[in-house]
Every structure is written in C-alpha cells, then in structure tokens.
C-alpha cells in the first residue's frame, strides 16, 4: 500500500474526488427520485446522461469549431452547451417514461418487468448513439454530418473553450476554476432541486405520490403528471452532470453511461435510495473514497474500492447512510 503517495497528494485527491463525487451525485438524483416515486430502478438513466454529454459536445463543436475563442464568448458557448445538455437529457428521460414505463406502471405490472424494460431501453439508447454514423448513412447524411457522427465508438474530445485557471492552492495542489465550477454548480443545483421538491406545489405532489399514491390521487394529484415531472427533473440534473463531466473529463463515447451510471446508482444506494440529500452525501463520499483508494492500492483498484465501501456500509446500515425515502424524509 502506497501511503506516501496518498499523503503527498492528499489535497489533489480530495478535491478531484469531490468534483467526481458531485457529478455522481447529480446523476444519482435521477435514480433516487424515480425510485422514490415508482419503486423502480431506471437503469436507462445512464443513457439519459450519455446523451447529455453528446449534446454538450456537439453544441460546443458547432459554435467553436477548432478556433480559439475569447473568454466572454467561451462562457456564452458553455452556457449554451449546458442548456443543450439539460434539454437533451430531459427529452430522453421523458421519452423513456412514455415509451418504456408508462403502460407498465398503469397496468400495475410487476417491478421485474419494468426492470427488464429499463435494461432493454438502455441498450437501445446506447446502440442508437453508437451506430449513429450508419443511421446517418441510411439517410445519405453521412458526409454532411461527418464531424458529428463519425467515430461513434471511440472517444470524442470536447474543444477547449475555457482556460482552466489555477485559482488558489490547498496544500500542494492548485485548485482549478473547473474544479470549483463543477463542485459549486453541482451543489447549487441540488439545493435548488431540494427546495423545489420541498416547497413548490408540484414538488409536494411528487412527495405525496411517493408516500402514498392512492391518497395523493384523492388530493387531486395527477399521478401520471407527477411521474413525468420526476423523470423531467432527473433528466435535467443528468444533463447538468453531463455538461460538468465534459468540462472535467473532456471526452465521451456511446458507452460512457455504463460505468458512470453504475457509480451514480451506487452513490444513491450508499446515501439511502429515495433520499435526495442522501444522493449528495453518497456521491461525495464515493468520489473521494475512490480517489483515496486508488492512490493507496493503485488505480486499477478504483472500482473495487467503491464497491467494497458500498458493501461495508450496507452491512451496517442497510438503508444507506441517510436512510429514509423521498416520501418519508421530511426534506
């Protein structure tokens, strides 16, 4: 075990771990909210995220190309990329709800069937993205869209828009503007979502449906609407996560959702599935622990560390760190 490496790079490992964790947490919200309302693991949520990364990538490519841009224009481009990613992910999430789940929920079919539907939808969405050059070819569009559809199954990098400035040191590590941007915006989004679910009328409808769907209907909550809203919110958060991911990691491909999705789901379970604040706690802990673990044991042990932590915590707290569900939690 390489303790020296861990201690010498403690600040860097922790800060980048928090940035990763914040991204996990934003994705985890989608899993946790849908679970809270439908008791269903939306396995296709990882694809909702993946489409967001491409929306951010394409928007940036389209607006910037290979040229370099001024800071002001760069910020504008990034804002548009964020909006595009959120819109794309939200759309995919809504389509998913309509096509893969609504009928199953309406007919009260067993959760297992919805799970299979989720896994199927996940493959379909991933492969549609992976085969996009061929799909474009069917319509004779391949040449026009070459830059966007080619190399579907390899990593695509984001044009560099924003200088990654070093802001201030913690220990030996210079914290960068992207680290700060990722962590701060993830936390701000979470707070906004938390307040929305707690205080707004629609948010209350979602919570009521999560606690007791039948009684919620008696209060006048349109449950189909509440479920749709849940998917929409999860999609928006996944889109934001996708944008931040592209800032931090800068590359994506058609199957990028898989690992990220599994990690985010782990974060949701770790924090207590169904619990919004649990997603944040779970995500941050997972991100930091992974980084520390890979420093200690070598980076190939990264995922092992993540899942060992999950198993150990669930052994002692089967409902996750914060426990309670979206419904029962007061927040």
């Amino acid at each position: 075990m390489n303790f020296d490496f861990l201690f010498n790079n403690f600040a860097e490992l922790t800060v980048t771990g928090l940035a990763f964790g914040a991204i996990y947490a934003l994705i985890a919200l989608g899993y946790t909210m849908v679970y809270g309302v439908l008791q269903l693991i939306n396995f296709a949520h990882s694809e909702v995220f993946m489409y967001g990364t491409f929306a951010a990538l394409w928007t940036t490519m389209l607006l910037v190309g290979d040229s370099s841009v001024s800071t002001m224009k760069g910020i504008g481009v990034l804002l548009l990329a964020l909006v595009a990613a959120m819109a794309m992910s939200a759309t995919i999430a809504l389509v998913l709800e309509r096509v893969a789940y609504r009928r199953l929920v309406k007919n009260n079919s067993p959760r297992l069937i919805a799970l299979i539907s989720a896994i199927g939808a996940s493959f379909v969405l991933a492969e549609l993205m992976g085969l996009r050059d061929r799909i474009a070819g069917w319509f004779g569009l391949e040449d026009d869209l070459q830059r966007y559809v080619a190399g579907a199954r390899i990593n695509r990098s984001m044009p560099n828009v924003l200088d990654n400035k070093q802001l201030f040191p913690i220990g030996d590590y210079q914290v960068t503007s992207i680290d700060v941007l990722v962590i701060v915006s993830a936390i701000v989004m979470m707070v906004v979502l938390d307040q929305f679910v707690r205080r707004s009328r629609l948010g209350r409808g979602i919570r009521a449906t999560a606690q007791d769907p039948e009684t919620a209907a008696l209060m006048g909550v349109n449950s189909t609407r509440a479920v749709q809203m849940t998917f929409l919110l999860g999609g928006l958060m996944a889109g934001a996560a996708a944008f931040l991911y592209m800032l931090k990691i800068e590359t994506t491909k058609f199957d990028v959702g898989f690992t990220l999705g599994v990690k985010a789901f782990t974060a949701a379970v770790l924090g207590g599935i169904g619990n919004l604040r649990g997603a944040l706690v779970g995500g941050l802990i997972l991100g930091v622990a992974e980084n520390w673990g890979s420093a200690l044991f070598g980076s190939e042990w990264r995922d092992v560390v993540a899942f060992v932590i999950l198993v150990v915590i669930l052994l002692f707290r089967p409902t996750g760190i914060l426990g309670e569900s979206l419904g029962k939690a007061r927040a």
Binding site: R201, R204, A208, G220, G327, K328
Partner: peptide, 16 residues
C-alpha cells in the same frame, strides 16, 4: 402523508 407535517398535509388537501 406520514413524512409531511400537519400543515403540509392540510396544504395537500387544498392541492387543487
């Protein structure tokens, strides 16, 4: 709704 306060429950009653 077990996770909501008395006030929130009453507000739910007035949802429409």
């Amino acid at each position: 709704f077990p996770g909501m306060t008395v006030r929130e429950n009453l507000d739910m009653g007035a949802y429409v």
